[in-house]
């Protein structure tokens, strides 16, 4: 029996040959605790942060920004504590990226005030002349669609229901439209009048960026206090 004269047998042999590495390096790890650790300090995204994350995906931000800090001295000095597996428990999909045309964002939460992000996202060159980031003006002009927010949260199993989603959306709208919102001035500068009282796509993107790495920073602060 000659394998090179039997196409179907040859195909079956190929399947067997490609399955070995697949089973060992991809399939079996799916069920190992080391690939899916959980920490009670890592919280799922709020409905607003999740919508911001979906804007991040839609615009392809992951094509220029990574979200994983490697355990290297200069990298930790530049970005902060290196990334741990449990931080990504709620990330579907993961957004680690593969190229840093811009800096890593895994620890950007809390690094700058909201107003900084409102200004920078809409006009990066206005802030840094040598930046080559696109200016995302349209995010500030577009009202967020919340038609599928509750369904998204349900699909991802974040553990809160549609009433909580509606409550979070209402609370966030009041927060960003409030004249006492800390970034109110900068937000008004970039947001056109008709949508100022609404949640814009940029509002949610800023909320998402502010979430990145915050749980880990919180954890660090607590362990410092204990010392």
């Amino acid at each position: 029996m000659n394998l090179y004269e039997r196409p179907v047998l040859f195909a079956i042999a190929s399947v067997v040959v490609i399955s070995v590495g697949t089973l060992v390096t991809t399939f079996i790890p799916l069920f190992m605790p080391s690939t899916q650790p959980v920490s009670r300090y890592i919280k799922p995204y709020t409905a607003i942060e999740l919508e911001g994350r979906d804007i991040y995906i839609r615009e392809g931000c992951n094509n220029c920004h990574t979200q994983t800090v490697r355990p290297l001295r200069t990298e930790v000095a530049r970005y902060g504590e290196y990334s741990k597996p449990e931080e990504f428990a709620y990330d579907r999909p993961f957004l680690w990226g593969s190229r840093r045309t811009g800096p890593d964002l895994a620890r950007v939460g809390g690094k700058y005030p909201d107003a900084w992000h409102y200004r920078h996202t809409v006009d990066p060159q206005g802030m840094f002349a040598k930046s080559n980031m696109p200016a995302y003006r349209w995010l500030a002009e577009k009202k967020l669609s919340t038609d599928y927010t509750a369904k998204k949260v349900a699909v991802l199993g974040y553990g809160y229901g549609p009433e909580e989603v509606a409550r979070q959306i209402d609370a966030f709208r009041l927060q960003v439209a409030d004249p006492n919102f800390p970034a109110a001035n900068q937000r008004a500068l970039v947001t056109p009048g008709p949508v100022r009282g609404e949640i814009t796509e940029l509002d949610t993107l800023v909320a998402y960026l502010q979430k990145l790495g915050r749980d880990v920073k919180e954890l660090e602060k607590r362990s410092l206090e204990r010392k």
Partner: peptide, 10 residues
Amino acid sequence: YSIYAGVNDA
């Protein structure tokens, strides 16, 4: 949304 999460998705 991907059926895999975090490290496994990567």
